[in-house]
């Protein structure tokens, strides 16, 4: 690892390293690269942290190959340096954690109105890949996708599993405003923008579903590990589902 100061642990068949992310967080790294195994390990650690929910843990942020635990530094006033104490406590918590295969996966179906003013880059993505827009939609809707992590913006899913037949580079000049609920492609990734933000993804269409739900618990439609299917809808269906004039 490239980290200047790490502590490592090994429990059962799971190895990981600890590195400080500032003075109030510790990053647990399970693998160097993204894989199904890294995802399972991250999920297993998260499940254990949820189960134990130590009082000194403020929250955690799971990512592709890491879980970062934010802690209450004030709770570690004592003889040992607080960072070391935190690592030891986490090691104890993770004893016996196995990277078992996920037992239950949710499947979330996401309706998308493709093309037109809702997906202004559909034609570009088609042309770039030597396909017709219909073929692009066909490939995009037949993919088997997994949510790897939520980050970047409230409720924004990082989704893996897109066919390389419809991959497309980011726009050279990012748009200043991408409408909320836009479905896009960037490189080998596909995703949905929950809120209006600037961004460089190629826009394929828009979903009537809200991904960020500030008044609900949890406030995100999607969670890491979810399976996703996209399906095509018409403008009439889109308007029915929105129930407003957008």
């Amino acid at each position: 690892m490239y980290i200047h100061k790490t502590q490592s642990g090994c429990v059962g068949n799971m190895e990981y390293t600890f590195s400080p992310l500032g003075d109030q967080a510790v990053m647990i790294a399970v693998e160097a690269a993204i894989s199904n195994l890294s995802q399972r390990k991250v999920n297993a650690i998260v499940a254990r942290l949820d189960e134990v929910a130590p009082s000194w843990m403020v929250e955690y942020i799971p990512a592709y190959t890491t879980v970062t635990v934010i802690y209450e530094l004030g709770e570690f006033i004592g003889k040992h340096p607080p960072f070391e104490q935190v690592c030891l406590r986490i090691q104890e918590i993770l004893i016996g954690v196995q990277d078992v295969a996920d037992t239950e996966q949710r499947i979330v179906s996401i309706p998308v109105l493709y093309g037109g003013s809702y997906g202004p880059d559909l034609d570009f993505v088609a042309e770039y890949n030597g396909l017709t827009p219909c073929e692009v939609i066909e490939i995009h809707t037949s993919g088997d996708y997994t949510v790897h992590m939520i980050g970047f913006a409230p409720g924004f899913p990082f989704i893996g599993g897109m066919s390389e037949k419809i991959s497309a580079p980011r726009k050279e000049t990012p748009r200043l405003k991408i409408p909320a609920r836009s479905v896009g492609i960037a490189g080998m990734q596909t995703g949905v923008y929950p809120i209006e933000t600037p961004g460089g993804w190629q826009l394929m269409g828009r979903t009537p579903l809200e991904l960020f739900l500030p008044n609900e618990h949890p406030p995100s439609l999607l969670a890491p590990g979810d399976k996703i299917r996209f399906y095509e809808i018409t403008i009439e269906e889109y308007k029915d589902l929105r129930g407003d004039d957008e």
Binding site: E59, I150, G155, F212
Partner: peptide, 10 residues
């Protein structure tokens, strides 16, 4: 706003 960063909430 702590407790929701795992859902991308800043």
């Amino acid at each position: 706003r702590y407790g929701y960063q795992r859902f991308g909430v800043v």
